[in-house]
């Protein structure tokens, strides 16, 4: 099998695992604190690589790791890793549409609805 395809499959498995894990842990709640949508002061205090990913996501509104990586000029796997870090921090929401996994800046109003 072509390495590229293998890599793609692995990525899909990783995405599915992430989605499963996310469904099991209550979203956006860590230590009883409800994490908020990303504000600009928090954005400024993120490390450079995460700030670049988050800023790009603000621009794109909804995007796959691939789409973000096209803007940030990083490897898709690297970008995916950063985006997942932002998801764990509660700043970014990860969701599925059909077979594709998308990210967007966590929107507090949708959580409180």
């Amino acid at each position: 099998m072509d390495l590229e395809i293998l890599y793609e499959k692995l990525q899909q498995i990783e995405d599915k695992l992430d989605c499963l894990l996310q469904e099991r842990t209550p979203r956006n709640i860590i230590d009883g604190d409800i994490l908020e949508s990303l504000d600009v002061m928090t954005l400024l205090s993120l490390p450079d690589h995460l700030r670049t990913s988050a800023s790009t996501l603000f621009e794109l509104q909804k995007a796959s790791a691939e789409e973000v990586s096209n803007v940030t000029n990083k490897e898709r796997a690297v970008e995916s890793n950063y985006l997942n870090q932002l998801v764990r921090m509660g700043h970014v929401d990860k969701f599925r549409e059909g077979r594709k996994v998308y990210f967007r800046i966590n929107n507090i109003s949708e959580i409180s609805k």
Binding site: E36, S37, L38, D39, V40, M41, T42, F58, I105, N107, I108, S109
Partner: peptide, 13 residues
């Protein structure tokens, strides 16, 4: 507060 301002950022965008 900060939470409201986070929302405002998205509104302005």
């Amino acid at each position: 507060d900060r939470k409201w301002q986070a929302k405002a950022l998205q509104v302005i965008m």
